[in-house]
């Protein structure tokens, strides 16, 4: 199936989903008008990856910010990864947020409360 690499734009994040390492990275901002359209290939890739995943899957979320339409799509992506967890792979989430960005920190905590995957909250100077 290959890796999924998408270059970021002013409205969409950079995507680097690596099949060989099991590291899935979302980086930048996510504010498209219709997020469903943008996130569809991500879900499809994860579904395909789930058929023969690496023993460890790392989901690196490095979002500067996202709109509410994206927040729902991100949750769906988390739910998909949750369903893979324990089925041939251990899924871990790294949630990055910028210093003093309580909003993004809270957003990560909210996902953590909904999704039963191990979350690591990582504060960085700049995303």
């Amino acid at each position: 199936m290959g890796n999924l690499n998408m270059e970021g734009s002013p409205k969409t994040p950079t995507i680097n989903f690596d099949e060989s390492t099991g590291v899935l990275e979302v980086k930048g901002r996510s504010i498209p008008e219709n997020s469903v359209e943008f996130y569809k290939p991500l879900n499809e890739w994860v579904e395909a990856y789930g058929k023969s995943p690496k023993s460890e899957t790392i989901f690196d979320v490095k979002l500067e910010y996202f709109n509410t339409s994206s927040s729902k799509c991100i949750l769906d992506l988390f739910k998909l990864l949750e369903s893979l967890n324990g089925n041939g792979t251990e899924v871990k989430v790294n949630w990055y947020f910028e210093e003093d960005d309580e909003d993004m920190e809270e957003a990560g905590e909210d996902y953590q409360a909904i999704i039963s995957l191990p979350f690591k909250m990582i504060e960085v100077e700049e995303i």
Binding site: N34, S35, V36, S69, S71, L75, I114
Partner: peptide, 14 residues
């Protein structure tokens, strides 16, 4: 976020 449905237009009611 957890229980709401996404509309056709991709709006989440949030």
């Amino acid at each position: 976020l957890n229980e709401g449905e996404m509309s056709e237009k991709g709006t989440a009611g949030l």
